[in-house]
Design a protein around this nucleic acid. Structure first.
Lengths: 227, 227
DNA sequence: TCAAAAGTGTTTGCTATACACCCATGA
DNA sequence: TCATGGGTGTATAGCAAACACTTTTGA
């Protein structure tokens, strides 16, 4: 960032290290992810994952967290290391090792930051992505696979939920993620049996029909592994 | 390695990148892993995972493969990226990001290379490890967790098998890994139902009892995911 | 009173587990 | 013929999947 004339020298060549974050959310009844339009070369004007260079005295996780905060203004999102991408030639400037993370956000929590470093930031449906810079298409594929795999054996999807929600909303969330209808009675039995939902006592009145009970997660931070 | 007076300079500080490999095998009826005694500082004389610095024009996977070959003399082992460890201060010399891999070897395939770069190399039972350099104890913990998790939903354990084997040997392998006895009939039904074993036609005569049928994997490379 | 979504149990098939005896061999 | 490990089937319980009607509300 600072272009002082200082340089940093080593006895043998060092790669640069970055973190890139695949931030998923559900909005508009679709799985979407956050992309940034690049302001400068390489790939100026193209869309890319939010990310950037690791500070030399900064932990990897913290770097990913920071990138996420810079783009979204939100902290405390679910964030997990995904995979490290390091093929030679993946960045035309120099050798770059990218430690990729994936993150999940409840949709309404995020109001994208205007302006900032990145020229532009926007949500894209996973099914309709623009052309991407670097090997970011591959990183996204890997992240999506991981997300889908984890649906089966963890409660990770609950990280998409707002503070409070109804069982119908939870079910709809899962239907979007697995892209298939789910049986209502089986789903509700499963969800309640997890023992992680508690009723708020409120009722959600929406239209001319029976109101829905409102739930919250008993431990918002916790992602449990099933079976 | 070459201590020419050349230096490599950058406009901002770069961390070093290494790969470290957790190589498991089964031998002596125990899960064991390969450690190297460090020849030089830091941690000279202490045991550590095999690993080393990434060459600037070398792919990450290739780097891990190379380290493995250098230590064991064997190539073509099962090798998978595990996790990237990058806490500040994990190496006292400079900032080092380590991309850890885990690898599995059939026991008899490995004759450790004498001498070489590393002062010494040896197998240690997971249950009886020496003090370890850097954060390698944590890396090993992570690798072991991953191995155990994968037993449940993949055929990864087959990578521990020699070219040919009997069902009793396969069962014994699993019993060691899960550290519990397994029902013989259920196990054999499960193993054969996978459709990945083929009889060689040979019989294994060992002692004064009925000889065992000998099997091989129908596709040695393939690790399948169950369910 | 009607339309619309919320809420609720039971039956059925499948998969995982428990369990005990005969077989083939070498000594 | 005996000791040793190799090889085989069936019954049962627990879980996942299929399936339809009643309740509550606002208009």
């Amino acid at each position: 960032m600072s272009s002082a004339a200082t340089t940093f020298c080593y006895a043998y060549p060092h790669p640069a290290v970055t973190t890139d974050v695949v931030l998923f959310t559900i909005s508009d009844e679709q799985l979407q992810l956050l992309l940034i339009r690049r302001g400068r070369d390489p790939f100026a004007g193209q869309w890319a994952l939010p990310g950037g260079f690791l500070d030399i005295d900064e932990d990897l996780d913290r770097c990913a967290e920071r990138e996420l905060e810079e783009e979204t203004g939100v902290s405390g999102l679910y964030l997990e290391q995904l995979y490290t991408f390091g093929k030679t030639g993946r960045d035309p400037r120099e050798r770059v090792i990218s430690v990729a993370y994936f993150a999940l956000a409840p949709s309404e929590r995020i109001r994208l930051r205007a302006g900032d470093d990145a020229a532009d930031a926007a949500w894209f449906p996973l099914t309709d992505l623009p052309q991407l810079a670097f090997d970011h298409a591959e990183i996204i594929r890997t992240a999506h696979q991981r997300l889908v795999a984890k649906l089966d054996y963890s409660t990770i999807a609950f990280q998409f939920l707002p503070e409070t929600f109804t069982l119908a909303e939870l079910q709809r969330l899962y239907e979007i993620l697995v892209d298939a209808p789910i049986d209502k009675r089986n789903f509700r039995r499963w969800a309640l049996a997890l023992g992680q939902l508690e009723e708020t006592g409120e009722l959600h009145r929406r239209g001319s029909h029976r109101p829905a009970r409102v739930y919250r997660l008993s431990d918002r931070e916790r992602v449990t592994y099933l079976k």
